[in-house]
Design a protein around this nucleic acid. Structure first.
Lengths: 193, 193
DNA sequence: ACCTGAACACCGTTCAAGT
DNA sequence: ACCTGAACACCGTTCAAGT
């Protein structure tokens, strides 16, 4: 059976879900595929690229969800959060991939959030820089809070303590505050006309 | 000359500023101090702890600044951002330390932002969960945007391209949107009384 | 108490050589 | 074209033994 990029991504994702990000090494992916470590480098140029690919796979469901149902910015962020939490260390992986410049993941999330904002706010009235700021703000917020949440979950699991899940609401609350700010700007500009 | 925790932190910070986070390894810190790698483990239990210590050193200036001058939440975030950008990969380090649960760095930033909010908003009227959400939201937002900014800077430096510094404003804009949302909540609750 | 030497169990990446 | 074997240059961490 021939090795390929998508087999590699699948194997890596499986290791991620089972053992976590720290164990998602090139060598373990290779072992899982029954192949020498060097073999991976014929299909993928380096680990960064693999991480980026995994991150895209993690957020891919938001694309298919958005294709059928239109989501408000609020709902979109909740959805994104959900998909991040759906994989072990999912938020951490996406955060790592996002802060690589020219990152495809960031662009995709950014575009999804921006288009959602455009449908629920008046683009003619709002300044583009406010929309941009809102989109990046919402993204960082959601991913950052999710990463923290997952770290807390794993810590609780490891130590056997029970876990405050109140940052579930915190994230959504912060999203709503930011969107409320955007709505206010919209109203201000409308009246200022 | 005797080794100590603070010498280790200083050496690590120097390596961070000169070569970046990836090169801030235990072994290089040891080499810089002219000591065997194992020696570090007498003073520091593991790398996580070192990273946490470095992160605290990076954000320490906000404490001293806040002790003399009171800052609005907006100003505080700009200040935080400034201090993150003051060290190579500073935002990445702080982000890494922050997502460790029970993180002292996160708590310190959180408390600073919360107290600043308390001075500029009416705590009697605003719900505590909104204040919490605002504080964590602002923190993740600022750190996330700064990390992205720094990654972009380094990429531009490496490839020799010029760099869009427009995410400087984006971060502050997002902060203002969130605070505007909080202000609106405040007004709403006032009128609803 | 504090540190060295040396090891253990790993990494990511490269590349001649094979098929 | 695609993969193996084997190496290169590293990691974090531990721990007997020294002083």
């Amino acid at each position: 059976m021939q090795l390929s990029r998508s087999y590699i991504v699948d194997a890596a994702l499986e290791i991620l879900d089972t053992y976590g990000f720290a164990d998602m090494t090139m060598r373990r992916v290779a072992t899982q595929l029954g192949v020498a470590p060097g073999a991976l480098y014929w299909h993928i140029s380096n680990k960064q690229e693999l991480v980026a690919a995994i991150a895209e796979a993690i957020i891919e469901p938001i694309g298919v969800r958005l294709a059928t149902t239109p989501l408000s910015p609020d709902e979109l962020c909740t959805s994104l959060r959900e998909f991040l939490l759906h994989h072990r260390d999912g938020a951490e992986v996406v955060a790592a991939a996002m802060s690589q410049p020219q990152s495809a993941v960031r662009l995709k999330i950014f575009e999804a959030v921006t288009s959602s904002i455009s449908e629920y706010f008046d683009t003619q009235i709002l300044s583009p820089s406010d929309i941009e700021a809102a989109a990046t703000g919402l993204t960082h917020l959601t991913v950052g809070a999710a990463a923290l949440h997952q770290a807390g979950l794993q810590f609780a699991e490891a130590t056997g303590e029970e876990f405050d899940a109140d940052n579930e609401w915190q994230s959504q609350n912060a999203v709503r505050l930011l969107l409320a700010g955007l709505r206010m700007k919209e109203l201000e500009s409308q009246n200022g006309k």
